[in-house]
Amino acid sequence: MVPQDYYIALSAILFTIGALGVLIRRNALIIFMSIEMMLNAANLAFVTFANTYQHLNGRIIAFFVIAVAAAEVAVGLALIVAIFKSKHSIDVDQMSSLKG
């Protein structure tokens, strides 16, 4: 059996990749996918900890998070589509009409 530390390390790596992705990538869709990766890294941590403590709590929380992520997708994709329709681009560097 794989020790639980490995899972936690994997989840930390996934979270870091996600956070770096948000900061480095410029395409709104890729940024969004990176955010989803951060949420799923948290899910992995929840499920692993739940396994360690032999609780149901952590597993149920993972389901909550999945539902919330789905709701976020609905709103986020709608926003991205609306912007793509008017600007024909979803590069966040081009969204600079507001600054100062």
Binding site: A28, I35, L39, A45
Partner: peptide, 22 residues
């Protein structure tokens, strides 16, 4: 879009924080 991306980003931090506290 800006609010959404940064808001969701910050939710990710809170959620991971909750996972670690758990």
């Amino acid at each position: 879009l800006k609010y959404f991306l940064l808001g969701a980003f910050s939710s990710g931090f809170i959620l991971y924080g909750i996972a670690l506290v758990y």
